[in-house]
Design a binder for these strands. Structure first.
Length: 496
DNA sequence: GTGCTTCTAAACACTC
DNA sequence: AGAGTGTTTAGAAGCA
């Protein structure tokens, strides 16, 4: 990484998985991102969680990276190796747009104007394409190479995300560049190491990766198994833990299967939009780059009408951090086609991607994705009109943690006393009312007004456009992976 | 030491 | 009946 001059903004070669922090881009730098020539630093590519893409044959690429802060330079030897190796092997061509994109802070706004909608646009706005093709191909240096079909995680081809290896470097070895270059690797010890992500985050990622943003338990198992082979050899207790999480973790909500009710037991599970920010926050804390791909926008999306926050806020550095997520935001937005963005949990989706309250990613550890915290307004379906909730509603949700918490899993209670008032929705009210009394409380807050949601949605649309425009830059690379794209997609379809 | 979060295990009920 | 699913409880480990 240190030998790359990002300012050139030319050409692209995937050089591997970058630590999330390292993907934070200094002002004035333009990133290629994953095949993303012409992307400004804040567009999409942090969401991809890896792949600084640089050309080996393009001019002006080499040289020390400029303005990289020490923490960004810090990296595991393995990462460096990979990058160096990949740079040589994963060439993906040069994007003509790259040069024009080199201007600092020339946000994608500048380019969006030139991007019109249309079929291609629509296709390009599907993050699946990025997940299944860009990542897969760039990371693995080839398409066919990816048995798991998970570009996000099977970066090393051994089923374990490199980042995970790095994160748990104390317990696992750094991946070799050769394995990356090979696009796959033999079984490694790391394969057997447990992912440093909580079950709730794994579930979250699984659900978020699903086109419908909802999955039955079985598919969640499958996703986890697919992306974390550790569990394939682990005792089956983890499935219990998954179910336990789904059941107890407020972040997840049960939804009825569609009317066409597919065969199969159980319900679909989705991420409670109210808690998505919490999960995002948890992901951020995980320092798991790939996990950040599942982050949703922390702030109002940049748009022509509302400039990106990083351009507005006085504190550039802090806004930069938040802008890290903007990229993820874009990816999340793109991850679903407009039609898919409907959150099964919330007819008003994609609401939470842009809701002001979802924007807030608190550093408060209590405001996390865990079972008990109630940092955000509860969905009506899970809201309680308990006395505590009234406190929250009145006091802006600043009830003391203890008041909001009824033990580590005390959130059960917040549903107990209060059947869903939005019974008309698709939400399911699990028969938790039958619970015996002791565990209740958990404050709730009224969801934000729908008007505000609509406003923000407009911004989301703006961002979608922007992101779509940015994605057009990827087209040049995309063409070299058509084949894998289809295979990946078909694979995904087959899994359904 | 305490509180919290997360994980794990187990038991039970329910549905298919 | 058995498997899968969902819920609940309890305990332990790790962390701040």
């Amino acid at each position: 990484m240190s030998d790359i001059n990002l300012t050139s903004g030319r050409g692209y070669v995937c050089i591997g998985l970058l630590d999330w922090k390292q993907m934070r881009i200094e002002d004035g730098l333009t990133w290629g991102g994953v095949g993303g020539g012409g992307y400004t630093s804040r567009t999409c590519f942090k969401a991809l969680c890896f792949c600084l893409v640089l050309p080996t044959d393009s001019p002006g690429l080499m040289g020390p990276i400029i303005g990289m802060s020490p923490d960004k330079k810090a990296e595991t030897p393995g990462v460096r190796e990979e990058r160096a190796g990949l740079r040589g092997t994963c060439g993906a061509g040069t994007l003509p747009e790259a040069e024009s994109a080199a201007s600092p802070l020339a946000t994608s706004l500048d380019r969006v104007g030139g991007v019109e909608g249309g079929a291609e646009d629509e296709e390009l706005t599907n993050l699946n394409w990025l997940h299944e093709n860009l990542l897969q191909n760039f990371i693995l240096g080839g398409s066919e190479a990816q048995p798991s079909g998970s570009p996000l995680f099977d970066i090393e081809g051994d089923g374990l995300p490199h980042a995970l290896s790095s994160m748990s470097s104390s317990s696992s070895t750094s991946p070799s560049s050769s394995s990356l270059l090979a696009g796959r690797a033999g079984e490694k010890d790391s394969l057997k190491s447990k992912p440093p992500l909580s079950f709730s985050l794994l579930i979250y990622m699984a659900i978020e990766q699903s086109p419908s943003k909802s999955l039955p338990v079985k598919d969640i198992y499958g996703w986890i198994l697919e992306h974390f082979p550790y569990f394939s050899s682990a005792p089956t207790g983890w499935k219990n833990s998954v179910r336990h999480n789904l059941s107890l973790n407020k972040c997840f909500r049960k939804v009825e299967r569609s009317l066409g009710k597919a065969n199969g037991k159980g319900s679909l599970w989705c991420v409670d939009p109210e808690y998505r920010p919490n999960l995002i926050q948890a992901l951020k804390k995980q320092h798991f780059p790939a996990a950040h791909a599942f982050c949703t926008p922390p702030a109002s999306p940049p748009s022509a009408s509302s400039p990106p926050r990083h351009l507005v806020l006085p504190d550039q550095s802090s806004s930069l951090k938040e802008s890290d997520i903007d990229a993820a935001t874009a990816m999340m937005l793109l991850n679903s086609t407009p039609g898919q963005r409907a959150d099964p949990c919330d007819p008003d989706s994609p609401m939470d991607l842009s809701r002001p309250d979802s924007v807030l990613v608190s550093s408060d550890p209590k405001q996390d994705h865990n079972y008990s915290s109630v940092p955000l307004p509860r969905c009506p379906s899970r809201s309680s009109s308990s006395s505590l909730s009234s406190v929250d509603e009145g006091g802006g949700g600043d009830a003391p943690p203890q008041a909001r918490r009824a033990g580590s899993e005390g959130f059960h209670s917040d549903e107990d006393s209060d059947p869903p008032d939005d019974a008309g929705g698709a939400r399911v009210w699990p028969g938790r009312a039958k619970l015996p009394g002791p565990r209740r409380s958990a404050a709730t807050r009224a969801p934000p007004g729908k008007k505000a949601r609509r406003d923000v949605r407009a911004e989301v649309d703006e961002e979608l456009k922007e992101a779509a425009g940015s994605l057009l830059h990827l087209a040049g690379i995309r063409t070299c992976m058509e084949g894998s794209k289809h295979s990946a997609k078909s694979k995904k379809l087959n899994r359904k």
